[in-house]
């Protein structure tokens, strides 16, 4: 299979995963849904290029990538809601310590679940990659995350101008 066909195949795969997973969260506003799904699409595309994944590798990695993404997206949405509620609770002076404790435990558990799922996927991923690809994955991950933060800064400047 040629590289361009591989990319098309990859798109179909990602999109099918997204239809059944991330877009299932109908209650989220458009922007919120699209942030996660678009980052995922872009990250997957860039990861495929950065690691130079073979056809055989994508066939094994992508189903698991989609599964992990679905689970993590749901957990991140839950975490986002919890944090939002926590912010409101902090403003309220009548809240008891016990309530805070419960919320904090919930948030910590949720973060831990996300961390474990991510770790789990990365363990699986590393099982499929060559040493060179593993090394490139580390650098790719760093660069991608940094890139997202820079993109965020640019969006903020543009957003403020448009207000």
């Amino acid at each position: 299979m040629k590289k361009r066909e591989l990319v098309s195949f990859l798109f179909i795969f990602i999109l099918f995963g997204l239809i059944s997973g991330v877009w299932g969260q109908e209650h989220l506003p458009r922007e919120k849904k699209n942030v996660r799904e678009n980052i995922f699409v872009l990250r997957t595309l860039r990861m495929t290029q950065a690691l130079d994944l073979t056809e055989a590798q994508t066939a094994v990695i992508f189903p698991e990538l989609n599964r992990a993404e679905k689970e993590k997206a749901a957990l991140q949405a839950e975490l986002g809601r919890e944090i939002k509620e926590l912010r409101q609770l902090i403003k309220n002076e009548k809240v008891e310590d016990k309530e805070f404790e419960n919320r904090v435990t919930k948030i910590m558990n949720c973060r831990e679940k996300i961390r474990l799922r991510e770790e789990d996927f990365e363990k699986f991923l590393f099982g499929q990659l060559t040493s060179n690809q593993k090394a490139r994955y580390i650098v790719f991950n760093l660069d991608f995350n940094r890139g997202m933060m820079e993109r965020m800064g640019r969006a903020r400047m543009a957003g403020q101008k448009n207000k």
Binding site: K32, N38, A155, G159
Partner: peptide, 10 residues
């Protein structure tokens, strides 16, 4: 507004 800019950029 920022979220929208961010999504467009993505």
């Amino acid at each position: 507004a920022i979220a929208s800019e961010f999504v467009n950029s993505l």
